[in-house]
Amino acid sequence: MQQTRSVELGTGLFVLLGIGALFFLTTQTTGGDPLGGNETYTVSARFDNVGSLKNRAPVAMSGVTIGRVREVRFDGERLNAVVVFEIDSQYDKIPEDSDASILTAGLLGSQYIGLQPGGSDIYLEDGSEVMFTQSAVVLENLISKYLFSSGGSDADDE
């Protein structure tokens, strides 16, 4: 009987430990959503080039994550990319003329959307579209621009 009790005790401890480990993995290693189930509203923006922006990429304002990208798709009629993203409802005073740009975290990091506030009294709401956007910086374009412009200045000197 004593042995049965200790076996059951050991099993209970083991299962608790296992569940504790699972809990640790699910809560501590995943960033989870900073939005975590909060109410959100959906805003879209059009970009000429989204670079390698992915679903679930953060939407940040002043460096603080306030939303997530939900969908990146190509509009076949207007020939540009449409990015749909969700913003936490507690940030409902974002001016409508704010500026959305695709930025890169670190030199080789993943891309995210940065919002710069505008000055309008009308605020973004569910379904509205950000008008002012800035495309992702493509490294090759940057390099070729630099090469061509330095080539041009050389020509001017002569």
């Binding site: 083991f14 299962v15 430990l17 296992g18 569940i19 480990a21 699972l22 640790f24 993995l25 290693t29």
Partner: peptide
């Protein structure tokens, strides 16, 4: 079957 996922979770935690 019950023990395996828990062992794997413990393994990952201790590994981290």
């Amino acid at each position: 079957v019950i023990a395996m996922p828990m062992l794997a979770a413990v393994f990952s935690c201790v590994g981290l």
